[in-house]
C-alpha cells in the first residue's frame, strides 16, 4: 500500500473516531448531570455505575427540594436564582448602556487620545483578578459594603464593560456611515443618531453582547465568594452550589438538579447567541 493510500484510509477512520471521542468527552458529563438529577440519592449510592435512571425510579424530588425555600424543607435555590438574575440583569443594563455610548465614541468620533483608548481597552483582562480583588475587598469591607449586591454589581460592570465596548465598537464600525449622515442632515442630534440609527441597526449585536455579559455575571464565582458568602440570603447560584456542597451537606442528586437548573438559562442564551457570539469573538483573527 502506498503512503498516499495508507494515509487516506487512516485519516478517514481517525476522523470518525475523533468525532466520536469528542462527542463522548463533552456529552458524557452532561448525561451524568441530567441522569443523576432525576434519581433519588439512595439509588446513586446503591448503583453508582448506572448512567441513566431506571424508568421506575425517575424522581423530580431533587428539583422540588433544591428550589423550595428553607421554611418548606428545601435548600432555597429559588432565592439564589432571584439574586443572580437581579445581579446579572442590572450588570447587563449598565454594561450595555455605557458600552454603547463608549463604543460609539470609539468607533465614530475623533478626539485626542483615541488610539490610547483603543489600544488599552482589553488590557484589564491580562491582570490577575486577585490583583483587583484584594484592594477591592479591603475597600468595600472598610465601607461596610459586605455583603452587598451593589459592590458585586459595580465590580461585574467594570469587568464586563471592556469586552462589551470592544465587541460593540467592532460592530458599530461596520454600520454604513451614510445612514447616519442622512439622519444628521434631517436634523437628528448625535444622541438621536445613537438612539434611532445605531441601536436599531445593531440590535442583534447588542443582544449578543448582552447575553455574553449576562452569562459572565451569572457564572462568576471569585467576587461572589469574597463579597457575598457570609449571608446565606445573598448567595448567587454559583455560590449556592459550592456552599451547599461544601458546608451544608446536601444530597448529591439534589445538587445535580440545582446544576441542571442553573445550566438551562445559559444553554438557552447561548443557543440564541451562538452564531453571533462565535463570529464576534473570532472575527479579526480569521483575516488573511
Amino acid at each position: 500500500m502506498s503512503r498516499h493510500a495508507f494515509e487516506e484510509r487512516f485519516f478517514r477512520i481517525a476522523r470518525w473516531a475523533s468525532i466520536a471521542f469528542f462527542v463522548c468527552l463533552t456529552g458524557f458529563p452532561l448525561v451524568v448531570m441530567l441522569g443523576l438529577s432525576f434519581r433519588p440519592v439512595s439509588s446513586l449510592l446503591n448503583e453508582p455505575g448506572r448512567l441513566l435512571p431506571r424508568l421506575s425510579e425517575i424522581d423530580l424530588g431533587g428539583y422540588t427540594r433544591i428550589l423550595s425555600s428553607r421554611e418548606d424543607g428545601g435548600f432555597g435555590f429559588a432565592g439564589f436564582i432571584g439574586n443572580s438574575a437581579y445581579i446579572a440583569g442590572v450588570t447587563v443594563v449598565l454594561s450595555l448602556t455605557f458600552g454603547i455610548f463608549a463604543a460609539y465614541a470609539a468607533a465614530r468620533l475623533r478626539y485626542r487620545g483615541a488610539s490610547f483608548v483603543n489600544a488599552s481597552i482589553l488590557m484589564v483582562y491580562l491582570f490577575p483578578p486577585l490583583v483587583f480583588a484584594v484592594p477591592l475587598f479591603v475597600m468595600f469591607t472598610r465601607l461596610g459594603m459586605r455583603p452587598s449586591f451593589t459592590a458585586v454589581i459595580i465590580i461585574y460592570f467594570a469587568y464586563t464593560l471592556p469586552l462589551a465596548l470592544y465587541m460593540l465598537r467592532n460592530y458599530f464600525s461596520s454600520v454604513p456611515v451614510d445612514i447616519e449622515e442622512a439622519a444628521r442632515i434631517d436634523g437628528a442630534s448625535r444622541l438621536g443618531v445613537i438612539r434611532h440609527v445605531i441601536v436599531p441597526l445593531s440590535a442583534p449585536a447588542i443582544a449578543t453582547v448582552g447575553i455574553y455579559v449576562f452569562m459572565s455575571a451569572w457564572d462568576e464565582f471569585l467576587f461572589a465568594l469574597l463579597f457575598l458568602v457570609e449571608d446565606r440570603d445573598s448567595w448567587t447560584v454559583a455560590l449556592g452550589i459550592n456552599q451547599l456542597e461544601a458546608n451544608v451537606g446536601t444530597p448529591t442528586t439534589v445538587l445535580m438538579a440545582g446544576c441542571v437548573v442553573i445550566t438551562i438559562p445559559v444553554v438557552v442564551a447561548f443557543s440564541l447567541a451562538q452564531r453571533f457570539l462565535t463570529e464576534g469573538l473570532t472575527s479579526g483573527s480569521v483575516k488573511d
Binding site: P29, V32, M33, W218, D219, F221, V237, A238, I241, N242, E245, L255, M256, C259, V260, I262, T263, V266
Partner: peptide, 8 residues
C-alpha cells in the same frame, strides 16, 4: 457554569 462543571 463552572460550578456545575466542577461539581459534575
Amino acid at each position: 457554569p463552572v460550578v456545575a462543571a466542577a461539581f459534575v
